[in-house]
């Protein structure tokens, strides 16, 4: 299993995990969800999506299941694992710290200019 817990997540991986935090999704569903949650500013291509999914699956942050559709076809769905949820929470905490520091420093910059 690849160790991904201590490294910051790439923007694509972060968006994929956030999309899967809402519900289990198939590839197309993830693309649509990422587009929606980023307000259309972050668009994933199939190459980036599956390269990231490959790493997330190997890291145990995402799991895959085959779901049988009414027509008899099968569709592969991806879901967030407990480990993935933990990593996502830790990444959000890290980003919050960055935002807090940025807010303080930019605030003092504004005060100096005023």
């Amino acid at each position: 299993m690849i160790e991904m817990k201590d490294r910051p997540l790439s923007p694509a991986s972060l968006h994929i995990l956030l999309a899967l935090a809402e519900s289990n999704l198939h590839g197309y569903g993830i693309l649509q969800s990422v587009k929606r949650q980023s307000g259309g500013t972050f668009k994933l291509g199939p190459g980036t999506l599956y390269a990231n999914l490959d790493r997330l699956l190997a890291g145990g942050l995402v799991s895959e299941t085959e779901r049988r559709l009414p027509g008899g076809e099968t569709r592969r769905e991806y879901s967030l694992t407990a480990s993935g949820e933990k990593v996502l929470r830790s990444e959000i905490r890290r980003l919050r710290q960055v935002v807090d520091v940025a807010r303080t420093r930019l605030g003092s910059l504004d005060e100096r200019r005023a």
Partner: peptide, 30 residues
């Protein structure tokens, strides 16, 4: 073998304007 079919399915749903991005994204990913 693992993701090829799914990637092709995603491309099937793409609009004409999205193709340049799909090709460049996949080329770089390869």
């Amino acid at each position: 073998k693992r993701f090829g079919t799914e990637m092709l399915e995603l491309a099937t749903a793409a609009e004409l304007s999205e193709w340049p991005r799909i090709f460049s994204d996949t080329g770089i990913a390869i």
